[in-house]
Design a binder for these strands. Structure first.
Lengths: 129, 129, 129, 129
DNA sequence: GTGGTCTAGACCACC
DNA sequence: GTGGTCTAGACCACG
């Protein structure tokens, strides 16, 4: 199973599940039509409360990532991959903007923040060429 | 007064106060030895409960930014500016790294993320020459 | 329950709770992963206000002794025992030094203070063989 | 002037004055019959509120260390030195006992606490032979 | 059920 | 006037 959860990390457990599921969809780990694990099964695997899994799945349905297949379970929707990738990129852009805004307010010059960026970029993307 | 607060911000009010105060210290808006507004005065100005202000100030004491002067009020500690600036920079670096890590995991190439960065940098730092 | 509190103690109630909790952790009365009593339960047992307990627990979180498990309660962190023991020993050494410094300034000779020490040691450690 | 005061040190300012005065009396820095500085003068020297000095002097009168000399000021009482020395010794004994009690509760063996004591004693009393 | 936050109002010691 | 502590009661998100 590609999901793992940490009750100590500050983020709500249901949110961790939803995010990781979207991540998995965006990266093609699960694709359109795939059935996701049942609420009970996933709850057992992660040793968490089934209500929590149900809540995560409900949110994923609200976000159009999952759809219920009557009598069978929940499956990944057809347009899910594209929308998850788009949401992901949007999210990253927003967070990047927020960091830059704060950096600006802190008095960091464009040059300084760019140096920081290049340094971090090297460490995070070093193997991605 | 240099502080303003939004109860619908998602962030706890006491935390907003503490952060903005550290920000003000880092930028020299208030300097070592200055008395910060009294608990009651600030609570009145922000129309919030004095306990909430007190909690923010208590946290700032725990963080070594403020110190109590008995019967007089709370003053900014001597080393506060440097430590606040350092904390601020550290915070920004960490957040920047987190965004880049997530971008990397999302499959964005170094080139793509750099384009995003340059675009956002222009909008946030346009007036900082 | 291993906690008891005296409102007339001079020490703040929330501080008494925090200290005794650290004490309990240091001595292994509660160990890593254990859930501490809930805020409401402990408040009821000690017949004090839940906010006071919450404040004690918040401080213990700040000190890295407790961590919150969302929707479940507060648990003792993994490294807590060692850090609590270390803090405890450090505290005792400091207080001992302060007493000796004051004794020295008061003009007590090493011999006199040692007699005092031996006398008190007998009464406090008589059963510790 | 042999008195100095720190508003940041946690202890009440009036208490700092009273303690230091008793200390000075115990050590013979000021002796029976000596006039202590007037409230106004001392307040000016320490740049603190005269009320605070007055409170310290009032407590010293209550403790029998100072007495008012009509139209002249406050002088050190005749038995002050002995009583201050006695109080000082009593205070030290109490604090020493408290440290030992806590050490005992922390599980330190008599041998360990004695080692700590001897080590600290060397550093504090090294020049007092 | 759990903790987290906030409000309201009270009392204290200190300057 | 100042901060520090405590009580009481409310609302929220989470599991």
């Amino acid at each position: 199973m590609f999901l793992h959860v940490d009750p100590h990390n500050g983020l709500a457990v249901y949110d961790q599940i939803a995010r990781q599921m979207k991540f998995a969809v965006a990266n093609g780990v699960v694709t359109s039509g795939d059935l996701v694990p049942s609420v009970r099964e996933l709850a057992r695997d992660l040793t968490i409360n089934p209500n929590t899994v149900a809540r995560a799945y409900r949110q994923l349905q609200d976000d159009g990532v999952l759809q219920s297949v009557r009598g069978t379970g929940l499956s990944v929707t057809s347009g899910a991959r594209k929308s998850c990738q788009a949401e992901r990129k949007r999210l990253i852009r927003t967070r990047l903007r927020n960091v830059l805004i704060e950096a600006h307010q802190s008095g960091l010059k464009a040059k300084e923040i760019e140096e920081l960026f290049q340094a971090e970029l090297k460490t995070t993307h070093r193997k991605s060429r």
